[in-house]
Design a protein around this nucleic acid. Structure first.
Lengths: 108, 108
DNA sequence: CTATATTTGCTAAAAATAGGTCAAGTTAAC
DNA sequence: GTTAACTTGACCTATTTTTAGCAAATATAG
């Protein structure tokens, strides 16, 4: 599965829902759904939980799909180089480690 | 170099600039600089070009550092799983490929 | 055809971004 | 122990971007 919009469309169709069915369930009108599926609009972060409930798909999975798509589009849009994601991965490790150390200091 | 703020601070100090020197050159006041260096505020995307001119560092390098940092922080904040960046990388490839095909259709 | 589903132009409203000010601190160097 | 450099909190504002509803235009299935 490549984009979040394609994922949404596939899951919707698997359930034989029209865009307006889906829109009603998730709280968006039909044009928003269309644009989201065609990626001219983003699905809103704040509805991810509702989406995971609706589709009965683990929230972590949904969230990861969502952010992978978001990052990919942004990296493409700004012509980032190909190494960017491995750098980002290292950065996350660094941040995690830093927070751990901070935690230790706070409770000393 | 791990975060964009740390990068900025290191480059500023290498030049023996105070935060207020740097702020003047880039068009931000001293509290903004401090917060940016300590990552409680973001550096603005629209100033990346000016920054690359000021530091005489290739814009692509600056941009990559900036976005790697941005993605990492977001992934951390939303507790994305560790595989997310390799998925994102694949997604970029997919997007690039799709745009190529679209280009071919448009000029047929 | 016709009905249903989807896409899209326009737009007001909402939300995110970007940053400032002022005050009250803390560091670090001399 | 001053002084310059830096940090941080609280609060405020302007600008830009994005959203999502309406309605009109297309597309698609039967």
């Amino acid at each position: 599965m490549a984009t979040f919009g394609q994922f949404l469309r596939a899951e919707r169709e698997r359930r034989n829902w029209t865009q307006s069915d889906f829109g009603e369930k998730i709280g968006l009108n039909i044009s928003a759904i269309s644009r989201i599926e065609n990626e001219s609009q983003r699905f809103s972060k704040s509805k991810l939980k509702a989406l995971s409930d609706l589709f009965q798909i683990d929230e972590q999975v949904i969230k990861d799909l969502y952010f992978a798509d978001k990052f990919a589009r942004e990296a493409f849009q700004y012509s980032c180089s190909e190494t960017i994601f491995s750098v980002a991965e290292q950065n996350v490790k660094y941040i995690k480690q830093k927070k751990e150390i901070q935690g230790q200091i706070e409770f000393k």
